[in-house]
Design a protein around this nucleic acid. Structure first.
Length: 573
DNA sequence: GCCGTTTTCGGCCCGACTGTTTTCAGTCG
């Protein structure tokens, strides 16, 4: 269920948006935006907090604490309600059109009474914007084009789609003679779960030919902007790609800047300012003399700011600066730390590779243990039976002899029914080495029922891992609604791991819930849920998500040596 | 609106590109 923090943060953000339309003080607006992020990322639930408690949240002062208190008691914020009465929701929606910001939105509303996207499109067609100050022919065209883009998708793409495209672009540009370095940065380097646009960075003393090669790429559908230092295109599939070309000596500063996030950059630049320095994509400079101090590597830039190098996956201004200053950054889990995979399928159910092929792929990954976890009978379409499952177990045991360095675990992926029960009784379940249990149906139970359902699954002594816990499908199915703090408490109490499923359209648990679960002392299993040989490669996305959740190897049970894992699977705690 | 080993007042990240402009505002990241 939506946490109080998320709802309150959305209201504070709305306050910032509405103030930017009415022309409020820009610094006040930024203060609200910062506070909205801080509230959303705060580990403790703000529901029930008093004024003093709220003020302990960084960037929340007296005034914003009072607004949060207002939310805690009334469920809304008075100032937001007042501004909503003044600015229709449709006007705020106008700012979602690319190239149309708060100033232009207010202009068309005040001058022409336009308060929705369709109205605006109609007004432009009818020539009603002619003569409006700041709106020329080109602006009209850009707005219409922006509306079109917004309507025909303009959506974020999954991380695997973006990664494949980015790697293709980087390979093409890196091959050019004048290109000294090239990589992708932005949200893709931070491994966000969906990507709005791809940021590519190149180092060259001569940008011209690189820009030309970039706009000439076969999938370039449109050049959005093109300058000496920066070029933006849109691909045939509608994804925007920005290319920045910087002098080679600026590489480190540019990579730091271009990786973001914007909120993280603001923090690092503030630290620079306080130290009498100036940080830009060209380097770290002395503010007074303008003399360049460092710029060649990211490590140098951070070091000169008094910080250790911060992994890109943490650069969201969600506490990483504070942790870095205290020397308390986590040693993040990596793909190389993994010793096993606890969730995979074969063609016995809905996988498309044989048991032998899947095991061979696991061995090629260098794993020390690998679990086969085909679907259980209650997912009726997979037609699993007790006999088939037991026959597979024999096959697994026989196959084991061929893999002296890879321990095969025979498991299953159970279905958590609406009451929290699973497919088999204790007797049958006790025969498995490991059981993942997942929600595959009845996604829309009310939060109280869903919470009980998940807690009961955790309390089952034979359930070791809750598979893709929110059951979301990014862009298709919403996460199930539960009181996650209660679920995580139960998981920690019973010694049940939460899975991080590596499928690009799942990435489940999501990073924000991982951090909340970590806060409760939960352990995790980062799995592929592979249904084919190619799916083994998805592990990097699961690990990226785990890293965004601040996980260390110790938090992830499938980095543990087999003996330690086996102890955990006994659930004796 | 927030915040302070320069500060309880006066700052607040920085730059690129576009379009409508004659020197800059708006938008974006």
């Amino acid at each position: 269920m939506a946490r109080a923090n998320d709802e309150a943060a959305a209201l504070i953000q709305e306050l910032a948006d509405l103030l930017s339309i009415t022309g409020g003080d820009a610094f006040k607006i930024r203060a609200y935006e910062k506070a909205a992020r801080a509230v959303a990322g705060h580990p403790d639930d703000i529901a029930g907090m008093d004024l003093a408690g709220l003020r302990t949240i960084p960037t929340v002062g007296e005034a914003i604490a009072k607004k949060l208190l207002d939310y805690n008691t009334t469920g809304t914020i008075r100032q937001v309600e007042e501004l909503r009465a003044q600015i229709p929701a449709g006007v705020r929606a106008l700012t979602a059109i690319p190239t149309l910001g708060p100033k232009k939105a207010l202009a068309v509303y005040e001058e022409l009474g336009i308060s929705s996207v369709p109205e605006l499109a109609e007004a432009i067609q009818a020539g009603r914007l002619r003569g409006l100050k700041g709106f020329g022919a080109k602006t009209e065209q850009n707005i219409l084009h922006g509306i079109e883009l917004m309507q025909q998708s303009g959506e974020r793409v999954l991380i695997d789609v973006a990664t494949d495209l980015a790697e293709e672009i980087v390979a093409a540009l890196a091959a050019l003679p004048g290109c000294l370095r090239c990589t992708y940065a932005g949200s893709l380097r931070r491994m966000r779960e969906t990507i709005g646009d791809i940021d590519v960075l190149a180092a060259s003393a001569e940008p011209g030919p690189i820009m030309a090669a970039f706009t000439a790429l076969p999938f370039t559908a449109e050049v959005i902007a093109s300058g000496e230092k920066k070029t933006s295109i849109r691909t045939t599939k509608g994804l925007q790609v920005d290319l920045r070309v910087v002098p080679p000596e600026s590489w480190g500063a540019a990579l730091q800047y271009f990786t973001g996030s914007q909120a993280h950059n603001i923090r690092t630049r503030e630290i620079a300012v306080r130290a009498g320095l100036k940080l830009s994509e060209y380097g770290l400079f002395d503010a007074e003399s303008g003399e360049l101090i460092v710029s060649e590597t990211e490590e140098e830039v951070y070091e000169r700011l008094g910080l250790p190098w911060i992994p890109p996956v943490l650069r969201e201004d969600r506490g990483e600066i504070e942790a870095a200053l205290k020397g308390a950054l986590p040693r993040l889990v990596t793909v190389d730390d993994l010793r096993g995979d606890l969730h995979s399928h074969t063609d016995l159910t809905d996988g498309i590779a044989t048991l032998e092929e899947m095991v061979e792929a696991a061995a090629a990954r260098g794993l020390e243990y690998y679990a086969i976890t085909d679907h259980a009978p209650n997912l009726f379409m997979q037609r699993m039976t007790d006999e088939k499952m037991l026959a597979q177990r024999e096959q697994v045991r026989a196959l084991q002899k061929r893999y002296p360095d890879l321990t095969l675990l025979h498991g299953t992926e159970l279905n958590i029914d609406p009451e929290g029960g699973v497919d088999w009784d204790a007797d049958f379940l006790s025969g498995f080495d490991v059981c993942v249990a997942s929600i595959h149906s009845h996604f829309t139970q009310d939060p109280a029922e869903m919470t009980r359902r998940l807690i009961r699954a955790c309390e089952n002594p034979y359930v070791h891992v809750i598979g893709h816990p929110t059951a979301r499908s990014i862009g298709k199915r919403r996460p199930v609604d539960a009181d996650w703090d209660e679920v995580f408490k139960a998981a920690a109490r019973t010694g049940t791991a939460m899975e991080i499923d590596s499928f690009p359209d799942r990435l489940d648990l999501p990073a924000d819930l991982i951090r909340r679960a970590l806060h409760h002392g939960v352990k995790f299993s980062v799995d592929t849920d592979a249904h084919s040989l190619g799916h083994h490669r998805n592990i990097r996305y699961g690990i990226g998500t785990a890293q965004r959740g601040w996980l260390t190897p110790d938090d992830v049970i499938n980095t543990w040596p087999l003996e330690r894992l086996r102890t955990f699977l006994k659930k004796t705690t």
